[in-house]
Nucleic acid binder design. Structure first.
Length: 293
DNA sequence: CTATCTGTTCTGAC
DNA sequence: TGTCAGAACAGATA
């Protein structure tokens, strides 16, 4: 599930590859995945890639932008070589084994490819999305500005201070900390994985009501969020199921997670306890009953 | 085979 | 106004 570190990893990967290239064609394989008129963006150059919350934006030379939300299973994979030898290799593996190979997603395009962008040098950007929840929209600068206001504080901005966080707890005191952290209108970019990991790092129970959280604990939570997000970006994000970077490769953060999807396993803090799993707001929530208070 | 679970965000009901 | 279930969708798992 692409959260801030995964989207940031894709952004950095794509910046190296497509900035300066002109969009020559767009093939829409699933109408719902592309919202807007593709003719408005074909023929224009990519001048930059930005990230806001879990959204990725390709900025074009005519001031319009292509905005993507990958939701849970979306991928943005760039291929320079469209002859795609990997595809032929994988097809053999797939048929030989009778089931999809380990590198199944390297086959491009595949059955989950919803949009194909072709650049003027014949290289391609594939938007894949198994569950079709993700989307790409053509947006004007005004629409981008309006959208920006709907989202909360960026963790890596100077606005991400304890006082700015605490001021947003007003009237939400009964809410628990896990739901508070994953609310995009409050802090932008934190999802299920990094909320659980940050709260473990901070030693805070995910069920804690925010009105009962002390200032010293908020300080710790803020520091833990930054620490965990930086670490996840360093490792290129978490590949739980579908996430891959702009080159189609998996992330490495899953090997460094301490609670997420570690239900029943020994706590990484050597406390002797096992990781528990509960449901908060309909989402799986993982924590150590001994290390988190 | 069916039922359940997964996890981001929006919508509509209370 | 806040909260919450349900939906969007496809596939893995029980």
């Amino acid at each position: 599930m692409p959260e801030l570190p995964e989207v940031e990893t894709i952004k950095r990967g794509l910046s190296d590859k497509i900035v300066g290239k002109k969009i020559a064609d767009i093939e829409i394989r699933n109408a719902k995945s592309f919202q807007g008129d593709k003719l408005l963006v074909i023929g224009y150059k990519v001048i930059g890639i930005e990230r806001r919350a879990k959204l990725i934006r390709i900025e074009l030379s005519n001031n319009l932008s292509l905005l993507f939300h990958l939701k849970m299973t979306g991928q943005l994979v760039y291929r320079q070589d469209t002859r795609n030898k990997i595809q032929e290799t994988n097809k053999k593996i797939e048929f030989a084994g009778g089931h999809p190979s380990h590198d199944w997603h390297a086959v491009l395009p595949n059955t989950h490819t919803r949009i194909i962008f072709t650049f003027d040098d014949k290289s391609k950007l594939f938007f894949n999305d198994l569950r079709k929840f993700g989307w790409c929209k053509v947006l004007t600068p005004q629409a981008i500005e309006a959208l920006d206001k709907e989202y909360g504080i960026e963790p890596f901005s100077s606005d991400f201070t304890v006082s700015n966080i605490v001021v947003r707890t007003n009237k939400l005191g009964n809410r628990n900390i896990k739901q508070f952290l994953t609310d995009q209108k409050i802090i932008a970019g934190i999802g299920n994985i990094y909320a659980d990991e940050s709260l473990f790092d901070a030693g805070i129970m995910p069920t804690r009501k925010i009105k009962d959280i002390k200032l010293s604990e908020w300080t710790k939570i803020r520091a833990s969020i930054l620490k965990i997000l930086k670490l996840a970006i360093k490792y290129g994000g978490t590949t739980d199921s579908d996430y891959v970077n702009a080159e189609g490769k998996k992330g490495g953060m899953q090997d460094h997670l301490k609670v997420y999807h570690r239900t029943g396993k020994p706590c990484a803090g050597n406390c002797g306890s096992k990781i528990k799993r509960i449901t908060i707001g309909g989402r799986g929530t993982h924590y150590c009953p001994k290390c988190q208070k």
